[in-house]
Nucleic acid binder design. Structure first.
Lengths: 252, 252
DNA sequence: CGAGGGTTTGAAGTGCATCAAATAGTGTGG
DNA sequence: CCACACTATTTGATGCACTTCAAACCCTCG
């Protein structure tokens, strides 16, 4: 039986942000943190709320989004284990610049922004490390913008699927079966399209690339064929190290 | 007659990135920097080039872009005076993650990345300051992604025009005339649309909001009308502090 | 088994892209 | 200052991708 204290420490040490932090800081952070469990649909915070805490995801999926007066949502990103959320409020006068909602049941560590902020002020290496991570998120967004302007709907879905492939399999390029991590409707809006478009685009992708869809499972028979179709309209070359929870920051 | 040395110092001190830096570091940076003049069309560096320097723009406009094998370009951003470019190569193994080209004649300071990197390692305040700036660029991109999914072509143009308004006028909301800073074709691709679409969308915007177009000049008669039309499909409220060269980082 | 959300399918509409061509604007050399 | 060449911009006609609205289907779970 592992104590909550130890669980928090384990998670923090697996988080890119804290992987190089000294135990003294980790312990300090743990003292001020607690674990929360969010059911599907739970709103963690809303855009323009005052911000005291940031979140480190242990498991589950969380969407970051903004919405207009008429309720239309724009999804900024969807994050999963070992990602952090809400930390940029430090630079926004401690106001969250977006809303966050658990879209699959999520376990998270919730920790005070002030502790993070203090460490950033005092520890240049840590600041630089976080700068590194944010700079990569930014590059990731550059690609996202590019994808939305150059790729069509089936290609965007293909790209999404390719990013779900574990790194080992990316190297061997052997066929495998992967599972869509959350609702297709959500994937659709993550990719900036309507659910109906997603459905039709997915079956077009199926016809073009010999993948087999069964519910949320996607069987890739010929990865090169999928890559050839998907990455034709992209400036990067597969495997494009497009940051996901599993394979980000390989070159740190 | 101002020496080049003094011109560089003046520019650096006006750059957000260095506004709080000590003279000792500024002087060190100046010793290793030089001014370059880039005519329209000059390529500063290309995606995947090895990176030794970053650029600080004194005047002119520079586009950051990536391109696919077939030559299609995706514009990441277009920057102007007091912005910096290429600095994130520090976090990409000293390889530029995008290409850069002067699209209007530009004066720039070119300085070694290593000097910047050293200062980041040694100076937590400076690292945190840069983190601050990059975090805001990231938020800016969040908005960009939102705009591309929620706004139609005329609204995107309206938003672009609104961002060109000086801060004082944003407050008074009085009418004024502004000038488009570079070719309409480039604005079009900056906004992710075709030149033809831009032309048609601009005349639709004209009909909807009582602006008057004459070549590159845009006369805004009723700013509230322009805002009402443009910002209807956006999650932010005007003035949305959407980072441009002139008004970014007001709350630092 | 039945309710409700997620997903798919169909039909019609819209916005933007594309292709083609005319027009306006700019810089050049005479 | 004008004519030419060249580019930027606009306009027209058409096509396609995605959206929208409507309805059916399917899956899960009480």
């Amino acid at each position: 039986m592992i104590s909550e204290h130890d669980r928090i420490i384990n998670t923090l040490k697996q988080t890119d942000l804290f992987e190089k932090s000294k135990d003294s800081f980790i312990n300090e952070l743990v003292r001020q943190s607690r674990i929360i469990e969010a059911p599907k649909g739970k709103i963690l915070f809303s855009q323009d709320d005052n911000a005291e805490y940031f979140y480190i995801i242990q498991s589950g999926w969380v969407k970051m989004f903004r919405e207009t007066l008429d309720g239309t949502q724009a999804i900024i990103d969807i994050r999963s284990s070992h990602d952090f959320i809400g930390e940029t409020a430090i630079f926004e006068n401690y106001v969250y610049p977006y809303s966050a909602e658990a879209i699959e049941p999520a376990n998270m560590i919730i920790a005070p922004l002030s502790t993070l902020h203090d460490e950033l002020k005092n520890n240049a290496i840590f600041s630089l490390h976080m700068l590194h991570l944010i700079a990569r998120q930014k590059r990731h967004q550059d690609h996202e913008i590019e994808h939305r302007s150059l790729q069509n709907a089936p290609q965007r879905i293909g790209c999404f699927i390719l990013q779900l492939i574990p790194n080992e399999n990316k190297k061997t390029r052997e066929g495998l079966t992967i599972h869509l991590p959350y609702d297709k409707t959500l994937i659709a809006s993550r990719l900036g399209m309507q659910p109906e478009t997603f459905s039709r685009a997915l079956s077009k992708l199926k016809n073009e690339t010999d993948i087999v869809i069964k519910g949320a499972s996607v069987k890739i028979n010929d990865m090169d064929k999928l890559i050839g179709y998907t990455c034709a309209a992209c400036s990067s070359i597969f495997p494009c190290n497009n940051m996901t929870s599993k394979n980000k920051c390989e070159n740190v």
